[in-house]
Amino acid sequence: MKEPLLSIRNLTVSFDTARGPFKAVDGVDLDVAPGELVAIVGESGSGKSVAMLAVMGLLPWTATITADRLSFDGHDLLALAPRERRRIIGRDLAMIFQEPMSSLNPCFTVGFQIREAMKAHLDLSRAERQARAVELLELVGIPEPERRLRAFPHQLSGGMSQRVMIAMALACNPKLIIADEPTTALDVTIQAQILDLLLRLQKESGVGLVLITHDMGVVAETAQRVCVHYAGQQVEMQPTRGLFADPHHPYTAALLAALPERAKGRILPSIPGVVPGLADRPQGCLFSPRCRFATETCRRVPPPRMGSELGLALCHYPLVEGVPQNREIAA
């Protein structure tokens, strides 16, 4: 395997709340190789966005970030001085946010906002920056780029705004783009356009892409590798085909079974209960209260991490072809 571009080991993020510290991200590992497309899937509250915001250094001061390793392109992001860090973030490492309408500044033209990143990071003249901005808008498929650069965000549709966000992320030729639910706020036909655009850019420029999403359909159609997050923990990681064919963690299996398009009968196999909060965090496996295979051991003892042949599942009894393993030994 190529030297990973982004390497995370045992990343933990906790927030100070009035009721004590809350672990939003709990022991997450991730390697992303140059040019790779990794998806992070999870429901709301699974810590998938927070983990990536920690990498970007965009969390508020109430967050405590610890990790055994957090390196990007040879730089140790934990040890880096803020000034050095700002030199990397936005240039080599860029982010696309979920709500394109609210992440653009309504007071400035989109041209200003695209050129702003180049002004901060690249040694280009004013005319060169303008030329590059036109080129970027053409690249992301916006017609009449010169005119659109003078437009304010409210004059653009949701799909257009997301294209502008992508153009901003690409402005400084990043090595890795983190896209946080880039198509969630968009209509299906526009979502298809944006996903096609991201995949094309990723293929052409060889940029690494981390795609945060909750949509299993988007994952199946785009990613090479998938991480599944639950309540802050990474419960499974597998190549996409393997994950959909033979999920090893009961949560992944239940999540796939709950999709209407994969259902057979009129009643969907739903997961009972909700994601645990700060107050009702179980002692053992965090998924045990909702898991249909849970045993006494699951409720008491935090589960071990399985090997890569079992999708690094965080589970006492990982599933193979839907059947829990190691059961006899424990009984």
């Binding site: 549709s157 799909g159 257009m160 299906v188 036909t189 526009i190 979502q191 298809a192 356009q193 996903l195 096609d196 949509d215 299993m216 359909g217 988007v218 994952v219 199946a220 159609e221 996409t240 085909r241 959909f244 064919a245 796939l256 999709l259 398009e261 994969r262």
Partner: peptide, 19 residues
């Protein structure tokens, strides 16, 4: 255009132009 949660399905995708 609707993504299908099945990596094995390779369908022809009609991407509409414009909005």
């Amino acid at each position: 255009a609707t993504p299908v949660a099945d990596p094995e399905s390779r369908r022809e995708r009609i991407v509409l132009e414009g909005e």
